[in-house]
Design a protein around this nucleic acid. Structure first.
Lengths: 118, 118
DNA sequence: GTATCATCTGGTGTTAACACCAAGTCAATA
DNA sequence: TATTGACTTGGTGTTAACACCAGATGATAC
């Protein structure tokens, strides 16, 4: 798969795809003999996963560390799991925070409704 | 109330407080005759509200617009309400997105658990 | 063979949201 | 009265996460 197709498939720019590989957000992508990237299912899987994590705000730095550990094989399983757990907790915190603010906003809006009636 | 006290109270830097005022994230803060900021309850209320919104990711730009409308008086009530509604919807979308990713992460972690048992 | 592509690498530019700094003012304190 | 300390403004610096650009290469179309 060419970078243009992957770019299309996941709605990401080619620049972002190359950036992700450069900084280690995904493992190295296989190349054709002439050096052109040739994405396979494995690479696409990573891209999809990283894209999803990035969209929800997991920092690049954390994901780079995860990929680094992953590439060191099964001996890092335990650490990787811990890393994911940490992010899960962070996510839960953020969700709770957002929900609280959501309620606050909602009641502020209700206030506006009340004011209209008067 | 001095800026140092407000800074302490809301755990924000003095720089951030001045920045918020400068860009219009909060209405102008009253000053003592010598020009020093003297925050009252009204100002503190704004700071608390804006701080809360910013923490959850509502863009500065949107909040500036809200404050601008607010300062134009009650004739902008309807627009302000619409603005808040838009943000509420955005928040709901983001929360849904985060929750989906949360579940994904959680099951990935469960996978790690399974692998350990074998 | 040459014009047209898409791709490559290496480097610089951008944006949001502050953080930091310097030089000046003012009030209180020793 | 001299020093200390908090505050002021105006300006520049920082960081993350890409976006954009230029020049070179290699395959394909004509």
């Amino acid at each position: 798969m060419l970078i243009s197709e992957v770019s299309e498939k996941y709605s990401m720019t080619q620049d972002t795809l190359r950036y992700y590989e450069r900084v280690g957000l995904i493992p190295p992508v296989p190349r054709k003999p002439n050096g052109i990237r040739d994405y396979d299912d494995y690479s696409c899987g990573w891209i999809e996963f990283i894209h999803c994590m990035r969209k929800t705000g997991v920092p690049v730095e954390v994901l780079v560390e995860y990929v680094r550990l992953y590439q060191q094989g099964s001996k890092t399983k335990e650490i990787r799991k811990e890393l994911l757990l940490t992010e899960l907790n962070r996510l839960d915190d953020r969700i709770a925070n957002l929900q609280a603010t959501r309620e606050r906003l909602a009641s502020k809006i209700e206030n506006y409704d009340d004011l209209e009636k008067s």
